[in-house]
Simulated assay, not measured.
Amino acid sequence: LQQKAIAAQVKQLIGNNTIKANGEVGYNFTDGKLVKRLYVSSRQHDELSRGLLAIAKQDEQYYLVPAAVAEKITQRQAESIVVLNAKQQQEDEDDPYADFKIPDDLMW
């Protein structure tokens, strides 16, 4: 009974806080052993990379949710959150390399 209540809370959190994923940029992520792709805007891609947005899974569907909502979902049902990147730290004002940004798509 308690698990059903938790599942209902998670469903409601996802339903009320979903951000529409619309765009042409493919964001690749893993769900278990599978690699999935969600098409998002370049802004949403950046926010996913910086940990401001997360990807939640419900009924084999993937949804974008804010990171704060994802943390609430994780407290209730951690397996529902597929992607939640760690938030990047604020840049140091005394950093001598602050003018030299590393591109997100850098290949080694």
Rank of each mutant, 00 (worst) to 15 (best):
Y27V: 00
L48K: 14
I19Y: 13
S42G: 06
W108F: 02
N28V: 13
V69C: 01
S41T: 03
E24S: 08
E79Y: 04
Q75P: 06
Y63T: 06
D31Q: 09
A86P: 03
V25M: 14
G51D: 05
Q90T: 15
I102K: 03
D59L: 02
Y62L: 08
E79R: 13
K36Y: 02
K33M: 11
T74K: 15
V35G: 09
N17H: 12
V69Q: 07
K4N: 07
N16Y: 05
L52D: 15
P66H: 01
E91D: 00
V65M: 08
G15F: 00
E71H: 04
D95H: 07
N85D: 01
I55W: 09
M107L: 01
K72L: 13
F29G: 14
A21Q: 08
K72I: 05
A7Y: 05
Q3P: 01
A8S: 15
Q61W: 01
A5R: 05
A5K: 08
A78G: 03
Y62R: 10
A78N: 07
R76A: 15
S80D: 14
D46S: 13
R50N: 06
G23Y: 07
E79T: 12
G15I: 07
K4Q: 07
E91S: 14
E60Y: 05
D31G: 04
S42Y: 01
V69E: 00
K33E: 05
V35C: 02
K87D: 14
Q2W: 02
A21P: 15
G51Q: 02
Q12P: 02
T18Q: 15
T30S: 07
D46E: 12
V10K: 09
V69R: 11
N85G: 04
L106H: 04
